[in-house]
Design a protein around this nucleic acid. Structure first.
Lengths: 250, 250
DNA sequence: GAGTCTATCTCGGAA
DNA sequence: TTCCGAGGTAGACTC
């Protein structure tokens, strides 16, 4: 593990270390009093303060304050970083192309610089998502109701993709909208858009919102619109087999 | 600046440092080979790998890989963090209430631990050029407008500290917000919060944003809110005499 | 590239 | 506290 640390480096030493760290595409961590200005999709300026600066090998650039999860200023992966001196001041600059964005950080006082070359090994697996809910319903259609038959998944409409399209035991079209968390009014609006597209053309269209729970306002709107709600918990187990398709049903 | 660093600490030394850092609500930065498991709104597990771990004074907990802006695992502000040993292994745990979520990180090998106590945010914004601007205005109130009289400095409200509080020649309350760099919408919002606190109680409250320049959006918002802008350059020279008080004016 | 959708979205403001 | 909308959303995926 190549790891280098320098406490309270001089300006010239900080410059040298940062130049080397950037050139070698290291993961760089800086604790410093700094100010920042950003210009691109928006514009911002940040006064002097103690901050944590992180530069990743993929070009990600972050300025973190002492609170919140999100960085106060940042640049996405593939941004180009460089360090330079201007009138005795030390600057870090990160530039992104398309859209053109520029973040400039002035380092007033550097308390700590550390950098090293990490290699990440394992990927993260997460479950509890909408796709897992979809898999579960495709495999167990009775969770929606007895006689429900899925017909299509991710069905494209001009309003977006319908999670699951199917028919009930009477042959009525059923539009299923999945949410892995508590459903709000936005979910109902989304479902309503899908249903409206089909209601124009034919009768007997049912819209079903599937979620572990629903807000009060959303439930009211749902009932006003003549739509239905199914309380279903998303699966919590990690799936290794992620290839469930509709082949069995078509 | 209290700042402590330890390279390649032993397990017991790492434990001691982390316990102290958490207890003192420091900003903690760890470079380590670790694995993580999360359970809450969703569930995830992350195999061993070199990662950057950041624990903020507000309870924010982040595990960063060597790419992407977003952390691979995290907990939001106000989460509770603790360190413990279990069967010779070193663990970090961060727990959130409502919704109940738990993130556990096993530290296989710690390369670097550093933590420090960033000074209070208020102190930070006051230090540097902003306080010099304040000094300058206290000494030359006419810079704001003829007849302006400063009354209080760093006046505490429930929304934060008002840079300068004063009265105009008609006796109307004036709230001055200083920015040493180009002011953005956040500065306007900040000023608006202060003004709102007083507008509730009395009439004739004026809010003045003082900065060397202002963004287009900020100026628009400022005018919509009935607030005012004064273009003032911060003094170029940093002052060593930092003890300007309001005694002369009270 | 541009467009769409998900997310442990985060975050701030309001009821 | 919960709910709701905004975001430099980021990130993944399709076309």
């Amino acid at each position: 593990m190549k790891c280098r640390v320098s406490e309270n480096p001089s300006r010239s030493e900080a410059y040298r270390l940062l130049e080397e760290g950037i050139r070698k595409r290291s993961l760089i961590v800086i604790l410093a009093c700094c100010s920042a200005s950003y210009e691109g999709r928006a514009r911002s300026s940040l006064g002097a303060g103690e901050r944590l600066i992180v530069i990743k090998p993929d070009g990600t650039f972050m300025v973190h304050q002492d609170r919140k999860v999100d960085p106060v200023n940042w640049q996405p992966p593939r941004s180009r970083c460089r360090v330079y001196m201007k009138q005795k001041s030390l600057f870090l600059e990160s530039i992104r192309r398309s859209p053109e964005e520029r973040l400039e950080v002035e380092l007033h006082e550097v308390h700590l610089i550390s950098f090293y070359l990490p290699r990440d090994m394992h990927e993260l697996t997460v479950s509890g998502h909408e796709s897992d809910m979809g898999d579960m319903i495709i495999m167990h259609p009775h969770l929606i109701e007895p006689g429900f038959r899925p017909v299509a998944r991710e069905y494209a409409t001009s309003s977006g993709f319908i999670d699951i399209l199917g028919k009930d035991e009477n042959g009525s079209l059923m539009i299923i909208e999945l949410k892995s968390r508590k459903a709000g009014v936005s979910a109902v609006k989304q479902l309503r858009r899908y249903v409206d597209e089909f209601r124009d053309d034919q009768v007997g269209v049912r819209g079903i919102l599937v979620a572990p729970s629903i807000t009060h306002d959303a439930l009211e709107m749902l009932e006003d619109e003549g739509l239905e709600f199914r309380e279903i918990e998303p699966p919590r187990e990690l799936k290794s087999n992620r290839g469930v398709t509709l082949d069995n049903f078509l």
